[in-house]
Nucleic acid binder design. Sequence first.
DNA 1: CTGTTAGCGCTTTCAC
DNA 2: GTGAAAGCGCTAACAG
Lengths: 341, 341
Amino acid sequence: MPTIKDVAREAGVSIATVSYVLNNKAASISEETRLRVLEAITRMNYKADVTARNLRAQRTRLIGYAWHEEKPGLQNAILSQFIYRLAKAAEACGYHVLTFTFPTGDPVSAYDEMIRTRRVDAFIVADTVENDPRIQFLIERRFPFASFGRANPLWDFNWVDTDGTSGVRAAVAHLVALGHRKIAMVTWPENGLTGYYRVLGYQQGLADANIAFRDNYILRGEQGIELGRSALAHFLSLSADDLPTAIVTVSDLIAVGVIQEAEQRGLEVGKDLSVIGFDDEPMSRYLRPPLTTVSQPLETICTELINMLNAQVHEQQEKTSQVLLTPHLVERASTGAPRRP
Amino acid sequence: MPTIKDVAREAGVSIATVSYVLNNKAASISEETRLRVLEAITRMNYKADVTARNLRAQRTRLIGYAWHEEKPGLQNAILSQFIYRLAKAAEACGYHVLTFTFPTGDPVSAYDEMIRTRRVDAFIVADTVENDPRIQFLIERRFPFASFGRANPLWDFNWVDTDGTSGVRAAVAHLVALGHRKIAMVTWPENGLTGYYRVLGYQQGLADANIAFRDNYILRGEQGIELGRSALAHFLSLSADDLPTAIVTVSDLIAVGVIQEAEQRGLEVGKDLSVIGFDDEPMSRYLRPPLTTVSQPLETICTELINMLNAQVHEQQEKTSQVLLTPHLVERASTGAPRRP
DNA sequence: CTGTTAGCGCTTTCAC
DNA sequence: GTGAAAGCGCTAACAG
């Protein structure tokens, strides 16, 4: 591998000159030598050693992303799309994404290690939980990071999030427009922030249409498909008059469960029962019927996150920013007018 | 951030001494100074700067992994599990995984860039295709890498792969044991190597049971769920006598499509029709019925890959190795004895 | 305009 | 046993 010295020798100049050419330093290099150096560079197929550059510049151009242990069946395909888009957005700014893992019990020390060894310039945190200890830690440490997801309304840090409230609200509005009045919801356990905002959207959507909120129309649980199945079973066990005609869920996976159970019980989804998911996973358009769902604007999320990092790292900006992105509803065939409104 | 100098000053020794202690260099440091240094290190919360170390050692302790653009609906959840396990296996050896992306048209130049800038010490290549240009390039370049997946039987390089042949063969054997004789297969287009090996297993499985191979029992296509659906539709269009009682597929996603179509047509999967997938995706156990499938030994795959890299990078080993891992069949309820054998 | 030189933080000979 | 010093490959004052 040629170094800057080799190029300098080849071009008959000093290494400083090569460096100037490399970095387009205004320190005006004569066109003649510039070309000579450039020619030597291409001839030797030279590229600057990034480690040496980084040592000199005291940065790594690396963004840390902690890879989450996936609980079987619980995770969605969204995260893997997310990291792909993140890598792309990072590359557009000359960064790369360095992945690492952390033990479930102790999320913080893996981040700490990365900071102390100066492995990365910043972090992207995703899949956050309420009062996420990683975020608390990074705030205290005053280390640059941006989060996909909120953690605590009182904490001041950079985050981007999908506005789950408006997403679910739009979902409910869509159902109401179709003529539904008996709309149930399936969501995660009570302690999560993401679920909280989505339930809020559900309640707002009902309120918009002057529909009373009923406790027995909301069901909570952990596991995606299973949850969807048991949720529908639960709703169908209500008295005939109370049977919901539509079900809003907080993930496509849950919606899949609802659809499976419905088909098995001979209900035609989209006709007898309307179902809405959340995420717009790649497979959702291929379900039968294709799933109406709320689409997460992943690409925008990622570019926003990277922008925040840039603002923080480069421009030493102290002010944090928060971005709430309105998702859009993708109307497909799993929703339709109720049979008996 | 404290540097080695700060520690040296704090402990009243030279930086060399600190370095010796840090690296447990046999250059016998007296127990007394060793403790003094150690104490200074903890007091200052010091950790060696990894960039400086890397520059000195001429390595990065980074493994490059190119993130593939995911075609919506085509990808499986396996890859995202794979990269998590890979990150874990890498960390066990003091490495981290650096992700990058490449444009579909030109896979090679992104790898080239990483090499020339000395960004990574090695690559892990996954999701390979026949005659994969990335592999050809890395072989020519003589750059350390290991591949999850084969590419060309004539090329000599490090790879680990799931033995699709034995996996599908076992799947067929399972069906035969249950009493099936009319076993069809759904697979990818003809040009892929992975699909080739799996079809081979299908043929071997039939041969094992003295069942004749029929052309119209094999269907090919691209898109997972859709393919499964249309495949079943095709098979059901055969004359009554020819109707297959079991279907083997090359992915869980395809199997999902088959199951969906079957349910919709009133067939009870596991009774009227047996279906087998491949991959054992996280969600597959939660399908109704739970999917019988061939499980990829991801954890072993990843540790093997990292081992190969270690052998190549550390021990300058020239000899390549190839590992074919036998997957195991996970028997669940989507398979059962045929109704009319 | 170009070259000399001092580091960035660390490891490792080579002296003492 | 410990320290001085060279140097990994690069950038950026500072001279000239």
